[in-house]
Amino acid sequence: MTTLLIADDHPLFREALRGVVARVLPAATLREADSVEALYAMVEAEADADLLLLDLNMPGAHGFSALVHLRAQHPELPIVVVSAREEPGVMRRALDHGAMGFIPKSADAGTLGQAITAVLDGDRWAPAAARAAPAAGADEHDAARRVAELTPQQFRVLQMLGAGLLNKQIGYELGVSEATIKAHMTAILRKLGASNRTQAVLVAGRLALDPGSIAPQPDEAGD
């Protein structure tokens, strides 16, 4: 039994993907997530899933960070990025960070089905323009390597840090003490090779879809 995971915050597009999968793999089991937190829980619960269709632009996904994290935590799970960001450079970067395929959201149902089938058969699939685009730079690969070393909880803290939350706010969201968050921050800074929160955000920001848009975050005493 084939199990496919769909992570997209747009109900209409999830419905479209369900329709394509139903035609290509009528016996497949589908699981869906409409948020980043639901995505992580779904992947943990479906350890034997055959494929994840991942939207890059889900709120909280922060560019390629979620892709890098999932590839590190679940290397056996093939991931295909499905995105409205169709620039060749963005597609190539997704492939460079471990995606088995990239399907533009503008693709028709036939192309979607072809791509899904190809990846399930063990092949990579992406538009020709993606393969012709320049590869991700050395700094970006280094950032990906460092982010991949984070534990799931450390990664969540980093994501919230990138969203501008302070330690107390992160602790509240995760249901842990501020002291625990400070301990996570110490480990995050060490693994990212950063000396403060601003540097940590900038390292992770190399994985953003538009790296130049990342704004430094204020440091806190005791970080």
Score class of each variant (00 low, 15 high):
residue 1 M to H: 11
residue 3 T to S: 13
residue 4 L to I: 15
residue 6 I to D: 00
residue 8 D to R: 09
residue 9 D to F: 01
residue 16 A to W: 06
residue 17 L to R: 00
residue 19 G to Y: 13
residue 21 V to F: 08
residue 23 R to M: 12
residue 28 A to I: 03
residue 34 D to Y: 07
residue 34 D to H: 10
residue 34 D to E: 15
residue 36 V to K: 03
residue 38 A to F: 07
residue 42 M to P: 13
residue 47 A to V: 06
residue 52 L to V: 00
residue 52 L to C: 00
residue 53 L to T: 12
residue 53 L to E: 08
residue 55 D to Q: 12
residue 56 L to W: 06
residue 59 P to D: 09
residue 60 G to N: 06
residue 61 A to N: 07
residue 66 A to V: 12
residue 67 L to R: 02
residue 68 V to Y: 02
residue 68 V to C: 06
residue 71 R to I: 07
residue 72 A to T: 08
residue 73 Q to S: 15
residue 73 Q to I: 12
residue 74 H to A: 09
residue 75 P to I: 07
residue 76 E to L: 12
residue 79 I to D: 03
residue 80 V to G: 02
residue 81 V to L: 08
residue 82 V to P: 04
residue 82 V to L: 06
residue 84 A to F: 08
residue 85 R to Y: 14
residue 87 E to Q: 15
residue 89 G to I: 12
residue 90 V to R: 00
residue 90 V to Q: 01
residue 93 R to S: 10
residue 98 G to I: 05
residue 98 G to V: 04
residue 98 G to N: 03
residue 99 A to W: 04
residue 103 I to L: 15
residue 104 P to T: 09
residue 104 P to L: 07
residue 105 K to A: 05
residue 107 A to M: 11
residue 109 A to F: 14
residue 113 G to P: 03
residue 117 T to K: 14
residue 118 A to F: 00
residue 118 A to T: 08
residue 122 G to R: 05
residue 122 G to V: 10
residue 123 D to S: 14
residue 127 P to L: 06
residue 127 P to H: 08
residue 129 A to G: 03
residue 131 R to N: 09
residue 134 P to I: 10
residue 136 A to L: 07
residue 138 A to C: 02
residue 140 E to H: 04
residue 140 E to L: 06
residue 141 H to E: 04
residue 143 A to H: 03
residue 144 A to P: 02
residue 147 V to H: 00
residue 151 T to Q: 13
residue 152 P to E: 11
residue 152 P to V: 11
residue 155 F to W: 13
residue 159 Q to P: 00
residue 160 M to N: 04
residue 160 M to P: 00
residue 161 L to G: 02
residue 162 G to W: 01
residue 163 A to S: 14
residue 163 A to V: 00
residue 165 L to S: 09
residue 166 L to Y: 10
residue 166 L to C: 10
residue 167 N to D: 13
residue 168 K to H: 11
residue 168 K to T: 12
residue 169 Q to M: 14
residue 169 Q to E: 15
residue 172 Y to K: 15
residue 172 Y to G: 08
residue 174 L to K: 01
residue 179 A to K: 09
residue 180 T to Y: 13
residue 181 I to C: 01
residue 184 H to A: 01
residue 187 A to K: 15
residue 187 A to M: 13
residue 188 I to G: 00
residue 191 K to E: 14
residue 196 N to S: 10
residue 196 N to F: 07
residue 197 R to P: 03
residue 198 T to N: 12
residue 198 T to I: 02
residue 198 T to V: 05
residue 198 T to Q: 14
residue 200 A to R: 08
residue 200 A to W: 07
residue 201 V to G: 04
residue 202 L to D: 01
residue 202 L to Q: 15
residue 203 V to F: 05
residue 205 G to P: 01
residue 205 G to V: 02
residue 207 L to Y: 11
residue 210 D to F: 11
residue 211 P to M: 14
residue 211 P to Y: 14
residue 214 I to W: 01
residue 216 P to K: 02
residue 218 P to T: 07
residue 219 D to H: 10
residue 220 E to H: 04
residue 220 E to C: 04
residue 221 A to Q: 08
residue 222 G to F: 08
residue 223 D to G: 06
